[in-house]
Design a protein around this nucleic acid. Structure first.
Lengths: 325, 325
DNA sequence: CTAGGTGCAAATAATTTGCAGAGGC
DNA sequence: GCCTCTGCAAATTATTTGCACCTAG
């Protein structure tokens, strides 16, 4: 079920193998959702009567230390535990009526939280965001839809969606730029950039479809990762009329600026997340953008060289320095 | 201390006057910060030995129902209570080392939280945002600065700061516009707008100073209300070169657009907050902007009328309809 | 053999409840 | 006198601990 392999005994340090502990961990990992210590005791007792509450508590604490479980407090006067191994850290919507809880992640909220902490010189180690209220099903009285899928898959799905949206927006921009630019060499540069984006887009979409096959109802599940700002403004580089007179050098500079923005953006956000498939997607995407960026910079340098040969000498303080950082 | 008047016995419904309860409530209100039930018992016992724990618990519950207190959970395995009467609802930074907690409010976070809830069709009734970590003093080993002041005053201070920043930004914009505009009547309109802003600004600053006098160390306390977006972009109406050819009609339209933006913005945010002085400031500010807006609209209509007389008839589908909504 | 894991029962800790008496209206 | 508030002690609930025993390395 959950992508949780052998690690069971690797992570914890200084532990002795013990059938009881392993049994408890296995039962815990087999479940999904948020279990209270008592829930877990009941589950264990179904397959083994001779397990004491104390052992379950001790094992739970051990799992938290080992990074397998996370202790969450929904204000019920007792704690619950959720999977944590390779699961993205997230926030909760908590229904006061049916007592279910739903997970989400908002990089925007995380960023604001960091900002507040830093404004107060507060070293934040963890943050809790909980929205209490009534869920859709309880309010409308409809059937309680299937439980949330695995966060990990949802996270990956949403990361891919964001990457795809960004890529689409880039493709659109370069295509428009190519259409508008009058200079034929400038147009060539934009055409190449658009082609590159299209290829990358195809790759991302293939990956997205592959993900959907792993879980057919993945697409119908609600948004897990809330994330503004991607695909917005990165490519809004100047008004259309400015694009008309762009030559190849300027076009390359624009491409460099866009790709660098995209790269830094995904790198920054990829690093923010906990280890998980979604994080990988962000970082891979950032890396592909970086490679593309480097390519553009090489092209730009080559272009300058050619120009320099033609015009005897290049200007020393030229934009090359800035563009190539 | 806290601006908490007689209301003590008004709010709760169906209660009988009782010396014990009143005593507990008074002791609670006299304190600031986050008290646990036990803290409160200890405090009460200092002035009256014959009070039972149960009564304190019962009174605490009663205060929560009456809206005097708010129950907060810092994950310590017990609840704490904070003032709630006319205190803005807020979020917490919680120091794991000294166990103090600091309050802040972020309208931006609240907005994002609402967005998430609405995307999930979740009827949010309350939200908890807690940042756990280590506070500045614990990390740097400096003296623990004086405790946070009253949220209410801090909130008012920050609301005023935001209003002032917005007003300044408006003043700056209109001044620049007046300088750039070539049309003398357009310039007159911008000059008037700038004057209006300056007057309003003076009023706000006076109010700010008055607030500082109520608590001299108010200014040195950290930001309580985190709030982006105010004073940003509201007045970024078009590039400078577009302002050059603006006549009086266009200038009025620009003014109307800016004031309306400002009005709606402060109204929306003012309504978001709980009852408190800061909320009042937002709403008052929104109202002043509205009055100014109405004035501008009247002026605009008068202008159109004059033009109509001059040119026989005004165009029916003119921008007047849109501007005056 | 020995450190760590386990069960059981007792201990804590925060909070709630049953009940009989007290006090305001 | 009635209804609610109070105090006290006992109950509840979640979690932890002491201690003797057990078991894997």
């Amino acid at each position: 079920m959950t992508a949780l392999p052998d690690l069971t005994r690797l992570k914890p340090e200084g532990g002795k193998r013990s059938s009881k502990r392993e049994q408890i961990v296995n039962v815990f990992l087999r479940q999904e959702g948020h279990l209270s210590a008592d829930d877990l005791v009941d589950l264990i007792r179904q397959e083994d009567h001779r397990i004491s509450r104390a052992t379950v508590y001790r094992t739970l604490q051990w799992m938290v230390d080992a990074g397998i479980a996370r202790k969450v407090d929904f204000g019920e006067g007792r704690f619950r535990f959720e999977h944590s191994y390779r699961q993205p850290r997230h926030f909760h919507l908590i229904c006061k009526s049916c007592h279910r809880s739903f997970e989400f992640l908002s990089s925007d909220i995380e960023a604001l939280v960091e900002e507040v902490a830093s404004a107060r010189s507060f070293a934040a180690s963890q943050s809790v965001v909980q929205i209490y209220g009534t869920c859709d099903e309880c309010r409308t009285g409809r059937q309680p839809t299937q439980a949330d899928g695995h966060k990990d898959l949802l996270f990956a799905r949403d990361a891919l969606r964001i990457a795809i949206a960004t890529e689409r927006s880039g493709l659109e921009f370069y295509t428009r730029a190519a259409r508008l630019t009058r200079d034929p060499r400038g147009r060539k540069v934009f055409d190449d950039l658009a082609l590159e984006e299209k290829e990358h887009l195809t790759k991302l979409e293939a990956r997205y479809n592959e993900l959907l096959q792993r879980d057919p109802q993945l697409e119908s599940q609600p948004t897990f990762l809330f994330f503004k700002g991607a695909a917005n403004g990165l490519f809004a580089e100047g008004a259309d009329r400015l694009l008309k007179g762009v030559n190849d050098q300027q076009a390359l500079l624009i491409g460099i600026r866009c790709e660098r923005g995209s790269h830094q953006f995904f790198k920054k956000y990829g690093e923010r997340f906990d280890d998980s498939e979604g994080k990988q997607i962000f970082l891979e995407f950032a890396d592909e953008e970086r490679q593309h960026l480097e390519l553009l910079i090489r092209e730009y340098r080559a272009l300058l060289k050619r120009q320099g040969r033609r015009r005897r000498a290049g200007r020393p303080g030229s934009p090359a320095a800035r563009a190539a950082r």
